[in-house]
Amino acid sequence: MWSDFGELIALALGIAISPMPVLGVILMLMAPRGMSAGAGFAFGWIGGVGLAVSIFSLLSSLLPARGSEGPDTAFGLTPVIVGAALVAVGVIQIWRRARGQADDDAAELPRWLSAVDKLTVTRSVVLGFSYAFLRPKNLVITIAAGLVIGRAEPGVAGTAIALGVFTVIASVTIAAPPLAYALGGEQVKATLVRLRVWLLANLALITGMTLILIGIALVVLGFVSL
């Protein structure tokens, strides 16, 4: 049980600690219609993560019941495979930075980040949902999370709690900036500006180290559950 819970938290952190969407939310908050756009993006993100992990959790319940050797092995190996993939991607990120290919992080930013000041609430919601649901890394992680929940067979109430915990943890870094801005106003703005500068300067390193640490945790937890 604790192994399943640990895997679920590690997977959720793999989505939560994503510098690019956090940077996007901060840039939205700096725009003229920042609060509405940032809140819309966070709302869409939460919906995208919640829907994705719910779908894959439901699909995992259609797999053969736990107890036979094949399905248990497949369930147990999923976090190991995902963790190894995250470690590999993280190493590549850091290696590219070390070789000087990621020094100019601004050149690698997606185009939507340069147009955040033009986002309407509707577009920001759609963007947040799409980024959370369709981003390859998030998609792989939510598939793994769905399999972990399916393997644990927690029942209806337990599944609802697991889905809620996963969604909250995976969304906390996206929802926190708009919430802090709404509560703190201009006093928080200066902190967000400093965070934006730091993220722009360290995107590749933050992403790489995060993926490596979370990947290692998943590999260890996956082997423990086998």
Rank of each mutant, 00 (worst) to 15 (best):
I141Q: 11
I141Y: 08
I141L: 15
T142Q: 05
T142Y: 00
I143H: 09
I143T: 07
A144I: 11
A144N: 13
A144F: 12
A145G: 13
A145R: 09
A145H: 12
G146E: 10
G146C: 00
G146Q: 05
G146F: 08
G146A: 01
G146N: 04
L147T: 04
L147V: 10
L147E: 01
L147Q: 03
V148H: 10
V148S: 09
V148T: 14
V148Y: 09
V148P: 08
G150D: 00
G150Y: 06
G150C: 00
R151S: 14
R151M: 05
A152D: 11
A152C: 03
A152T: 10
A152E: 12
P154Y: 08
G155Y: 05
G155K: 02
G155L: 08
V156K: 03
V156W: 04
A157R: 08
G158P: 08
G158Q: 06
G158N: 04
G158E: 02
G158W: 06
G158D: 03
T159C: 05
T159F: 06
T159L: 11
T159A: 10
A160G: 03
A160C: 01
I161F: 15
I161R: 12
I161K: 12
A162T: 00
A162W: 07
A162K: 11
A162N: 02
A162E: 04
A162Q: 05
A162D: 02
L163D: 03
L163H: 03
L163E: 05
G164Q: 08
G164W: 04
G164D: 00
F166W: 11
F166Y: 15
F166Q: 10
T167V: 04
T167D: 03
T167C: 02
T167N: 01
V168Y: 05
V168S: 07
V168G: 04
V168K: 13
I169D: 02
I169Q: 01
I169M: 04
A170C: 10
A170N: 09
A170H: 10
S171P: 13
S171K: 02
V172Q: 04
T173M: 15
T173W: 07
T173A: 14
T173P: 03
I174D: 05
A175Y: 08
A175K: 01
A175R: 07
A175N: 00
A176P: 02
A176C: 04
A176R: 06
A176I: 00
P177G: 03
P177K: 11
P177S: 03
P177T: 04
P177C: 02
P178M: 01
P178D: 01
P178Q: 00
P178G: 07
L179K: 02
L179A: 09
Y181S: 12
A182I: 08
A182Y: 10
L183P: 10
G184F: 09
G184H: 06
G184A: 14
G185S: 12
G185P: 12
E186T: 14
E186R: 14
E186L: 14
E186C: 08
E186Y: 05
E186D: 15
Q187E: 13
Q187S: 14
Q187R: 14
Q187T: 15
Q187D: 14
Q187F: 11
V188N: 01
V188S: 07
V188H: 03
K189Q: 15
K189W: 10
K189S: 15
A190N: 13
A190P: 06
A190S: 15
A190R: 12
T191A: 15
T191D: 15
L192G: 12
V193F: 13
V193R: 09
V193L: 14
V193W: 06
V193D: 09
